[in-house]
Design a protein around this nucleic acid. Sequence first.
RNA 1: GGGCCUGUGGUCUAGUGGCUAUGACAUCGCCCUUACAAGGCGAAGGUCCCCAGUUCGAAUCUGGGCGGGCCCACCA
Length: 798
Amino acid sequence: MGEIKEKAWDKSLEISILERWKNSKKFEFNEDSKKEIYSIDTPPPYVNTPIHIGHATTYSIMDMIARYRRQKGYEVLFPLGLDRNGIPIETAAEKRFGVSLIGIPREKAIEYCKKILEESSESSIDSFYRLGISFNSFEKGDRPGQIYYTDSEEYRILTQNTFIDLWNKGLIIKAQRINNYCPGCRTTLADSDIEYKNLDSTFNHIIFKCKETGENLIIATTRPELICSTQMIIFNPEDERYRHLEGKTAILPIYNREVPIKAHPQASIDKGTGLVMMSSFGDLSDIRFFRDENLEPIIAIGIDGRMNENAGFLKGLKMREAREKIIEKLKEEGLLIKQEKILHKTPICERSGDEIEFIGMEEFYLKQLDFIDELRRISEEMNFYDKSSKKILDDWIDSLTTDWPISRRRIYATEIPVWYCKKCGEVIVPKEKGRYYQPWKEDPSIEKCPKCGSTEFIGDTRVFDTWFDSSISPLYITKYSYDDDFFKKAYPVSLRPQGKEIVRTWLYYSILRCYHQTGKPPFKDVWIHHHILDPNGMKMSKSLGNVIDPHKILEKYGAEPFRLWAVIEGNLDKGDFSCSYERIEGAGKTINKLWNVARFVSILNRNLDESVKPEFNELDNWIMHEINEIVEYADKCFFEYDFHNPATTLKNFLWESFASNYLEMVKARAYNGDKRFSKEEQQGALATLNYVLQRILQIFYPIIPIITTKLFLTIYEKDPADLEFPKYEEIKNKLSTEDIVELNSEVWKYKNEHGIKLKENVKRLSINNKFKCIEEDIRSLHHPESIEYTEEEKIEVE
RNA sequence: GGGCCUGUGGUCUAGUGGCUAUGACAUCGCCCUUACAAGGCGAAGGUCCCCAGUUCGAAUCUGGGCGGGCCCACCA
């Protein structure tokens, strides 16, 4: 038994515990353990950006999950992965070194990316350490539980292996399709890479001619540069104004090409002039329209983002320039009769912010539309926390309309392991798995083309979409294709914790990819968290400049007030909540209260006498009963990833029931300075204090592990990490919390109103006879000259 | 345009049919009480967004309206 010396908890005390964890390797994953595995597929944070408050919060909660599961006897797999592939790394390198990675030798470009990765130092790892996150390891390596990089050879090999599998199963298609294309990143994008933004645009009213009647047809469009690729003019079938045009022909201005006019419900009567030019392609709806109507697209924008020969005099211009030029020309010729400013929901690239174009290109696709029913079925097998989050996934699956384009014309990512025969164009995918392929700089491992016998090949220069990598993290951490025995034990992964905003990417793609590889769902449980907002309830974003750096919070308050705040403030799987410095500070008060309660108990423990058998009274039974109710409640909630409600309950218990009421009433008995109590009664008080305190510390341990470890080690010389989660014990009690609180409150109120000091006497106390069993405790706290017991519930003080 | 969520004292929040609506922060008053003044006790503060309905009874259920948020979508 040790005694707590420091008068208050201070964040400087955190370091010794953090060091202890680091040095003891306590949380390392033991592959040989006989325990059931509980695995967590942590979201790999991007390495070149420091973690923000949302990361700090959600990783803290993941840590609570991991620690609780260890208390419950699981072997917990809790690795940290770092995402190091993709466009953000390239962009960072371009910015840092002032170069464009496109157009320079690829080796050089990769070198720049590696340099920026080295420089980015992994400050996030230090933040996780300071938050007390109990990852299995803080060292990089290939053993289960160690830190992994998504750009490591092992990870990239796994990505390529899965591609080879998919290719062999016929699930990869190479096809020329219309794609989302980002002119800034110069690559094809999936629908999930796109967001919509309200941008200013101009509605241009332009004169077309009807060939048969010679009348002017006024058409409003935001994309005049696409007149050259227009293949049809439509109006709504209900639109009286244009019904006579059905089946007639329109003549495009400037280009003088003839296109049919047709009634079609996609045109709405009250938009623009009611006449719409259908171009290839102004937006996604056009793509569907051309497909449905069997129209031949005229592609006018090239992969360099410039107009091509189909645009005639606009050839070579960028889209914006072309728009200006054609507007000028239309004005000159008197064909532009009106311009109005509108806000237009414009598809833009999530990464670069450039406006998306729709361009036909040959890309690799992973089939997904054929599997939608299966994906829905295996999604049913996973438990969602909170349940309502599953709808985000269902909605996304329902809205899929195309297969997943997985090839990107970029540099720093996993290479697509494909070569082409120079002579006949045959696609060559390597047979051998387990090697890292870089087709842009090496030859395939075959001598000659199986089709034409040619010996000359050309490697594909493209890479995979970053999600094609990160979607197999559940396979990687369970050593899929590297260690079959381990994989069998560890897959499916127990938990996927992730943000709601990447349900359509990370979660969805993980389900798709793992389904293709294993036929099974990747996870047992999915915990979807919402967002931490700024103090004004606004989304935090770099552009708004309202991002709160967790380093500042850690420096000011330390990890523990922050961690407690993260679960007290709200239920992150039920909704967003705001970050607030005052509340974090407020949580610090509870940390300090816990410290002092424990300190007080540790001081009272000087009176402990193991040789005396403790005798418990109804006050002791009451508080022991109460803490056991919380043990049971917390166990149930923690199991379902709810830390908020038990933390709130336990916090109130600590302040009210335990500190303000039980401790105050039992002080005299625990000291027993004037020997009013028997030795057995005194030991009953001390045993109860320690019983309750240990349980409080153990329930709080997953949430605030640093202070609870410190206290437990000092007072009880045990590490709570080595202890099981406390078991519920049934303790019969006669008195309730309401009884005790009401009694004390009435007396305190009376004394307060009558200017009587707390240790002074009151004349008479009239209380229900149920309190008789704790008479001495009541006497020693309130000092009544006489006590009357009645049948009434009413409490009277005089 | 569609879907989901949401509206409770100054601020945040609990509360899915029942006594006088929970708690925290902030405010005010009193108090050094053998741990904690980063504490204790107490007080003040609310038309539970609005309207209508169901019910003996509505913050809670239903319909409508207003406000806020998020996601999705083919508006030229």
